[in-house]
Simulated scan of single mutants.
Amino acid sequence: MAVRIRLGNYEQTTTDVLQRTAIGYFPRMTEEEAMEAGRGVWRLDMRIISRERFVLIVGEGLVRAVGEITAVTEHLTDRGLKKALETDLLGPGHPLYDTYINQPDPLANESRNSIRYGDLPEEAAFRTRDCACGCGETTTHPFVPGHELRAIMARVREHFGGSALDFITWLDTELPPAAPAA
């Protein structure tokens, strides 16, 4: 699945948590400017967005930028906790770029919501990926089930002599306490 982010009208801002000076779409903006304007901050469901691989940025009904999502970051705004996407901008030669750039929004609907998730046929070739633990197996998720623990334990063995307690102690020392869940 991909996520489509529809940009509103261009407006300048001085309060953006991503330190942008403007948001929204303006005619003749570059693909880089469209991605920067559209990457955040949004109310995104982490259960859904964490499974997405591609993002389409839409302005005035046309796809203005296509990117591959590399991370999702959280930011506290005056309207609560919101998310932003970190992306690699795609270019000519990539099937999603070649199919959708400067074309009508393939996930258009009547909703006022700027965010929409949907399947794009060109994604099929990208649904499987190598397991992030490095085992060489393929999966449609970041890890083959159970392999996230394999990856964690490999690092505990490598950096902490196999001691989970040493790892937890180090983690508690290095990171600030997490905010209580709402």
Rank of each mutant, 00 (worst) to 15 (best):
V55A: 05
A65V: 12
V66I: 10
V55G: 02
A65F: 08
G61W: 13
R79M: 11
E52Q: 10
R47I: 00
V66Y: 09
R64P: 05
V55P: 04
R51T: 15
T77A: 05
K82S: 12
R53N: 03
E52M: 05
G67H: 00
I57P: 02
K82P: 02
L62Q: 09
G59L: 07
G61N: 09
I69E: 08
A65S: 13
L56K: 00
L81N: 11
G59A: 04
S50M: 03
V66T: 02
L81W: 04
E68T: 14
T73V: 14
V58M: 14
T73Q: 14
V66P: 01
L56G: 04
L56N: 01
H75P: 10
T77I: 06
F54K: 09
I49W: 01
R64D: 10
S50W: 05
L81G: 01
V66N: 03
L62N: 08
R47M: 00
R79H: 14
V66F: 13
R53Y: 04
F54C: 13
E74S: 12
I69H: 05
T77L: 07
E60H: 05
R51V: 02
I57H: 03
F54R: 06
R51E: 13
V63K: 07
V63S: 07
E68I: 07
I49R: 00
V58A: 11
I48G: 02
E74H: 03
R47T: 07
T70P: 06
S50R: 03
A65E: 08
F54T: 13
V58D: 05
S50P: 00
